[in-house]
Every structure is written in structure tokens, then in C-alpha cells.
Amino acid sequence: MKVYLLKTGVANVASVTAAFERVGATVQLTDDPSVVQGAGAVVLPGVGSFGAGMDALDRSGLGAALIGRIERGAPTLAICLGLQLLGRASEEAPGVQGLGVLPADSIRLPRAPRLPHFGWNTVTWQSGGTQDAAPPSGEAYFAHTYCLRDAGTLEDAGWTVAKTTEGSTFVAAVERGSVLACQFHPELSGALGARTLARWLQRAVAQGASASSTGVSPW
């Protein structure tokens, strides 16, 4: 399956590309909103900072395309800062509006002994007994200073939430259908990360197949 990776500035695009290739996907970079709007699978990687990231998404029109596809449940993966950009705002860039897909704001991780929160930490999905098993829990790699914390509000909005604790408990990832957003880096999280990416990819393939059978091709 082809995965479209958003080119929004300098990110660790090579790491994300390599990780997807290892689980059998082909990766294409794009900064074209019409491609993002219609693509079967789209990845928003982490870029430098919230302000610069939103600026890039706003100017390119990619932000609106992302909101559209996430609202209709099209397979989308956001990584690290990508997760924060889906929220409403961030302490990192006061006054800058996020994409607002997630009803939560990013704040500086409270009570962390050290920031940035660099390294491996335990991710625990709250599976909530849904028929679809949650993505794998375990140790994943983080590299961030800001985070979302309103797990309850996100759950009320229909998201399954994973949590991690470093000084305080924060949102490690959220998932709703084929939309997955991770504060950790699945592309750098060894075997657990590879399983997380492969699972998201399988869901995207399944969704593409069912969309094709109804005559609406997301490709």
C-alpha cells in the first residue's frame, strides 16, 4: 500500500519512511492538499515546533485537507508534534490555533524530572472492552516537551486513549477507527513500533478495500 507522508518542513522523514518500508508499504512525500484530501493513507510526522508546524499547515492548505479526512475517518497517522497539532492550542505557541480535531490543548509536561522527555517509557492502552483490540501496549520511544492531558474529554469524543506517566500522566496516543495519533515515535520504537505501524496499515488497506467495493475509491 502507498502511504503519503506530509512534507511540512524538516522532520525525521527518513526514519518514518524506512519504518514503513520495513512493514511493506511504499512511501511518497507530498505537500499537495488535493492528494492529502483523497489519499488512502496519510502520515503527519513531527516537525520542529507547534507554531512553525501550524504555520506550514495553514499556508499550504494541508491543515484543511487533514481536518476533512480525519472528520470522515480516512486512515491518518499523526506522530509526536503531529498529535499536538491535531489539538486546539499549545502552551508552546500561545495564540496559535491548532487543527482542533482533538478537544485538548498541549501543555509543558508537568512535574517531569527532566525535559525533554527523552527515551523509552511504558504506553498503556485503555482498551475499554471494544470489539477491536487496541494497538499494542508496551515500551515506546518518546522525544518531546509538550503533551495532551485531557484523556477524559478525548474518550468522551470517541477516542480510545493510551497513557504514559513521567512526573504526571499524559496522553501517549489516541485512536478512533483508522485515525491514530501517537505522542511517541512508532518509527523509532523497535518491534512494538513496527507492530503499531503494521496494524494501522492493515486497517487502512481494509478500509480501502471496503471503499472500493462501494465504488468510492480513496486512491
Binding site: S15, A18, R22, H185, E187, L188, G193
Partner: peptide, 12 residues
């Protein structure tokens, strides 16, 4: 770096 990245699933 390119060659290592292709096979490496942890931070570099």
C-alpha cells in the same frame, strides 16, 4: 547513515 537507517528501528 542512509544504509543504517534502512534497517534500524530505534533512534539514531
Amino acid at each position: 547513515v542512509v544504509a543504517v537507517r534502512a534497517i534500524l528501528g530505534i533512534p539514531l
